[in-house]
Amino acid sequence: MGEKKEPVVKAASEDESEKFGAEMYEESARAMRQVGARVVLSVGAAILIWLAGRLIFVPIAQGLTEQLLGYPVAGIVGAIIAVALAVIIFTVFIDIRRLTGGLAGIMAYHFGKASGEVQKAEYDNYRTALDGVLYVVIVSLSYLLFVDYLATIHTAIPAILLILIVIWAIFALYRSTRAVANIVGKYTSKAANELEKQAKKK
């Protein structure tokens, strides 16, 4: 994995804002170069492992009646594939965080430029918002990859895992929208001030 660089976010003046934007684009391009290909390869590998497991290994294992250490072979094969997928998905998670950092910076730059200011807090808010929603999407997609293998270990596992994911997602989305509300809150107070100015003019 490439060296992780957190973007330095300052700003206020137009020059600093432009500099921040350029830095964010650079950071985003660097992140894309360093981890973009790896994310695509990891996702490709995860899908291939999932396909091979579902179409080849698990059907073969299900045809075997022997048990290994008291466990059915299909369950053990399912567990091995689930662990392999878990490792791949974990690396994708780390890489995605890097990509969202750059993307959040670009968003903070563009929206901040429109309102005349780019601030560290705004960057953090965009990042939190993006991270939250993307994590829930990735976890949901990952769950779909895991569900068949987990069911071969025990039929209750996918249900329990899904319930845990739902509870976690609720908290993750709540945290993510707090960041969005912080961003929008700033605009609403500006809009309120604007409204007051217009009323005074009348």
Binding site: L173, Y174, T177, R178, V180, A181, N182, V184, G185, T188, S189, A192
Partner: peptide, 10 residues
Amino acid sequence: GAKTLHLLLS
């Protein structure tokens, strides 16, 4: 505004 928006968005 901000609190309601946060709760409704969530």
